[in-house]
Design a protein around this nucleic acid. Structure first.
Lengths: 195, 195
DNA sequence: TTTGGCATGTAATCCGTTACATGATTAG
DNA sequence: CTAATCATGTAACGGATTACATGCCAAA
């Protein structure tokens, strides 16, 4: 028998938790005013969906944990007849948010399934690829239309407006969508069997 | 006491597994020839890193599972003195890959931390945002340079070349990087305190 | 001889999604 | 009345990352 002692696992050095970005998204939204979990979800879906997402099933447990950590406080909204748990950011939460905002941005590696399928294109019918790219183009085009509409609405917002940052992120979405569409057109021309 | 019976959880309907895209990435790469786990990791890092990623710590267990599922076979490379487990795609694996390639692309929602920080820009010093955007620009610019180099090398690849799909994905990266840089310049001008 | 690359794997943990479960309120 | 929306939460699971652990081989 091999000596078991040498196999004994040492106590693990606990690594610095990579810190869920969900927490910071929540802190950032709550920094503009109290909100319920449901509100947060809605706001994510309506304003920043083109570059961020959160699922309700994650939001609620995270809000609870953040309450325990003293980053937010919970109060049950009395004004509403309906059950509503409203969260407020605490000074500690605000400090945490500000500290995070100063930290360098960590880039998460992308996973664009459309490109993965294109990359493996040799293993399928070109018509399949064309269909995928066309569908992707349609999605991005409708997204572009929506973003341009919003961007147009925000065109008048001045430099000091609180909406300027929203406008910047919308502009980023417009650029990205246009680029995606341009690539789709290039790819579709290249894949076109008639040429 | 509340009746426990009513609380008894029913057997859960097993949902269709969302099916790890890692498996398909592996199948696609192995469809071009046998590779070791290490090879796959290298190939991901060198050729498709701008739109896909895999970690070794995930690759190995997945390869094992795929072996058990009959999608790949494992053989220990004898040519090499060094221990090398080489995987080959099986006919079943090829069928699985081809079926997946035909399925509609599922879009995974993006998470661009840089935009999240910009969106929360009101809660920090503008100089912080400027630094983040500038750093992001630099990253994307060097990525663009690399992609353009590769794209240039592939310029001569004809329509029937096996490299045409690589070229298409590289082109996508070039478009995306250029758009990101253009946005950064816009944002930097907008955030510039001197104007 | 030592550093770095090759090479495989496990352990711990976490982040997050989907589905389940429940119920009130409001608009048509 | 009924469907949609509001609203909160749990359960189960799975995908993936990072750190740990180990060791060979080649080159400087």
């Amino acid at each position: 028998m091999a000596p078991l002692a040498s196999r004994r696992p040492r106590p693990r050095a606990v690594s610095a938790p990579p810190a869920s970005r969900t927490r910071y998204a929540i802190l950032g939204l709550l920094a503009d005013g109290p909100r319920s979990g449901y509100d947060i979800k809605k706001e994510v879906g309506e304003r920043i969906a083109h570059f961020w997402n959160e699922s309700l099933g994650n939001l609620y447990p995270v809000l609870r944990a953040m309450t325990e950590d003293g980053l937010v406080t919970r109060s049950d909204d009395a004004r509403s007849a309906r059950a509503r748990a409203v969260y407020r950011i605490t000074p500690a939460g605000r400090r945490r948010l500000e500290a995070w905002l100063r930290e360098p941005v960590v880039a998460s590696p992308p996973r664009l399934e459309i490109l993965l399928k294109v990359y493996f294109g040799a293993h399928t019918d070109p018509a399949v690829l064309i269909a995928h790219v066309a569908a992707y183009r349609a999605e991005r085009a409708s997204q572009l239309a929506m973003l341009e509409r919003v961007h147009h609405e925000l065109r008048a917002t001045g430099r000091s407006s609180g909406l300027r940052y929203l406008r910047l992120t919308v502009a980023a979405g417009v650029h990205a969508a246009k680029a995606a569409i341009a690539w789709c057109d290039e790819a579709l021309a290249e894949l076109d069997p008639r040429t």
